[in-house]
Structure formats: C-alpha cells, structure tokens
Design a protein around this nucleic acid. Sequence first.
DNA 1: AAGTGGTCTAGACCACTTC
DNA 2: AAGTGGTCTAGACCACTTT
Lengths: 241, 241
Amino acid sequence: MMQSKSEIIAQDIAAKVKHQQFKVNSFLPSESELTKLYGTSRETVRKALEELNSLGLIQKIRGKGSLVLNLEQYSFPISGISSFAELSQSLGMDAQTEVLTLAKMSSLPELFKKKFPNEKQQKGFYVERLRKINGKPEILDCDFLFTPLINELPLSAAQTSIYNYLENEMGLEVSYATKEITVEKIDENLQKKLNLKDKTAVLVASHNYLSDATLFQLTLSYHDPSKFKFVDFARRQRIKL
Amino acid sequence: MMQSKSEIIAQDIAAKVKHQQFKVNSFLPSESELTKLYGTSRETVRKALEELNSLGLIQKIRGKGSLVLNLEQYSFPISGISSFAELSQSLGMDAQTEVLTLAKMSSLPELFKKKFPNEKQQKGFYVERLRKINGKPEILDCDFLFTPLINELPLSAAQTSIYNYLENEMGLEVSYATKEITVEKIDENLQKKLNLKDKTAVLVASHNYLSDATLFQLTLSYHDPSKFKFVDFARRQRIKL
DNA sequence: AAGTGGTCTAGACCACTTC
DNA sequence: AAGTGGTCTAGACCACTTT
C-alpha cells in the first residue's frame, strides 16, 4: 500500500497526538516549521493538515495555528466506514463473531429486497453474523456480496474480516458507503437472536462501493437499541447541494 | 460572505448537477477542460472537485474522470451540521416551530448536566422548541447557548433560525459539531409533548463550536423514533487515529 | 500515444493575530 | 512588524485507462 507524502505526514501527526507528543488544546508547530521538519513543500504539509482538519483532530485558526482538538474516541458501533474487526481492535474490545449463515444465492433475499427496493435481482453471497461484546449478542450483521465480482468467500474471511479479505486477498479497493440509520420493528426470530426485551432494533442499512464506483455489497445491521451509539463529527457546509 | 474561487467552482458544478446540465452516471468535463472553462489553475479546479468528492457528489476515478454520483437527498432530520430552518427549506417541507421556552439561566439546567457531565456551570439561554412536520410534532429541540458570547436572543430568532441570527446578525462563524445518536427512555412529560406511543425516543446530543474552537451551544434533540432517519455518506479512512 | 487524474514543488500575495 | 494560516499559480512528473 503506497502512501503519499501528505498521508505519511498526516499519519505521523495523528500518532504524535495520540502519544501526547502534540498535546490536546495546544497548537501544532506552524506550517513553516512542519515544512522544515518533514522536508516537503508547504502545500504538501497543508494537504496533511486539511485531512486532519476534516477528521476533527485539529481546528485550523487563521493567524494563530492548528489547535489539537479533544477528539472523542470512536464509539461503537459505527463511524465512517470501518469493519467490525477494525473497530473492535482499535477500541480494544472483547468481541466475537459467530457466523450463522454463509450461502451462495441466485437472487437477492427477501429481507434485502424489502429494504433496498431499487436493487435488481443479483447473484451473490449471503452472510449472516452475530456480533458479541463481552459474550453478549449486540449486533446482527446481514451482508450481501455481489457475484461475479466476489466469486469466492471462504468461511475464515467471514469469521475474521471480510474487508481484510477483499482488500488484501482480492486486491479490491473499498472506497465509500451510504448509510441510513432508522429504528425498526423486528420479528420474534430476530428478537431471540439479539436477546432483546422489545421488538425494536436500530437498523443501519448501507450501500458499499469500490473506488471505481461499483456497488459490491449491501449491509443490514441490526443493533440492540440500549447499546447503540453513533458518534459523528461534522463541519458546517459551505456548498449548497 | 467572501467565497474563494474553488468554492465558486464547486458551487457552480453542484448547481449544474442539480439542474442536470451535468448528468448522474456520466463524467464531468476533464480537469483540463474545467481549467479552461473557469479560467483558473488546475490545482484550484482540483480543490473544488475534492470538495465535491468528499461530499459524495462525485467519485474521482483515475485515468477516467470524475463520475457524478446519485447523491441521495438529505433526509430529515440531520446530516452534517445544518439548522432545522435550512433543512426544512432545502427539503421543501411543511414545517413549523413552536417556541415552548426561552429563558436566561444562571446555570446549566439539570437535563443538560445529566447528558453532558463534563460541562461546567455556565450562564446562558435555554431554548425549548417543538418542531412540527405537516402539523404533527416530531422533534423536541432543547438548546443551551452560552453567555456572554451570546448576550441577546430575541424570540424572533428562536422562532425562525438561531443559526441565521448568530451568523448574519451577530457575525459569529459556526464551524463544527460533535454529535452522538442514542436511543433513550423518556418521561411522560416528553412523551406527551411528542405525542408518542412508547416511552422511547431517539436522542441526538451535540456540542457546537465556532471557527475559533469556542463551544457556544449544547443541543439535545429528541426525535419520534418512527420518523427518525439519519443519512450519512462516508469515505473509507486512510489515516488511523 | 494521448488523455485522464494524483502528487509535489517554489513562489507569490493576502488576511488575520500578536507584539 | 513579524508570524500565522488561506488562496492561487504554472509547471513538472507519475500512474492509470483508452485507443
């Protein structure tokens, strides 16, 4: 995985913030100092800072400098586009995955047709996985991965990390996703699987795309409402859409 | 409000996509063509495209061009950082706001202390507003705005748009927010106000900041779960935090 | 080979903050 | 006046896609 200079700089600054070499509520070295430090042009340093700015790690203040913000830790279950494996690792959680289903299908299952009425009939892999935190079921992930783009899906990939398999084994480049969070009524079957008191769950429905804008995966993620927490960092929009 | 060249270009391209002068699923003119079209340097055009890319309006594909994506319309109630007034206008909704409370407080109300235990005692304005869509109550917004930064808050501002008042009347620059979405148990009082069947609501809790990183507002937004929908566009992260 | 986007550079000028 | 970030430029070289 080739990284650009600006990504290396951004990564390095993020690491130094994490290890408190650069402290929260203080200013980073100025752009001209960073330019000397990393031996690059100012625009390259600025690109790195812009990346960190958009992530909410710093706030750039004109005439003063780049202030390090107290970025709240990623909260489970989702923020941005990350796999369960990545999140549970970065949060240092006691997490297990139980694969309930892994099957090749000749068309989109009913569950997906209902939630994604615009998607056409397609072949693919259906994966159903129960995520447990501290031994207690918390999330049911239902994935549909399209064939022939994804032609094989070993059980080991479903047990550990599908994203890792796609990116590192198959060389696919996961790029972006659209997500929709709603509160839904669920049936008894799902209620039992998640061990819920009520027939209500938080649903996170996603379309997932590769860097060439190919839709490769649909996801329905059912969460225990009492455990669900979504944390977001948002900047005020200047462009009207 | 001064806009940079790159913002003007981004805004212009977004408008042309909206009016189907640039069509979804087709490519924008190449960067060199846009450079000629807008009479700027390539880096300036690229900055505009990068902005649109991060918003999910286009997908840049190396060697091919910038593909216009089918961006789902902003769904109510929140995406990014926008005011209720802005959202209801851009979505063309039949929305009303009823101001239930507007009071100057000498300290943070209990409700906020409970949800934001890290915030210190502070003076400010407490605003409670009921949002109705098609005449039906859907959201209860509870805001706390800090004094002395915000020293006056006319009722008319609370009835229309507090953000508009802060930005255009007071000259403050709203910059970013951290948001947390959870599902909460609510009391009978709140249940009545929102006319809910169950004692459950979706809570969106926000810290809102100015461009100089000053915290100016805390918000607790209670939503009818059956109406709640949060739509998010997310790009895969390259920087590990 | 030609066209596309991706990265990087060195320099310029501006606006804001601080002294 | 000096230091900070904000914007823009003209040019270079690279990697990928298409013909």
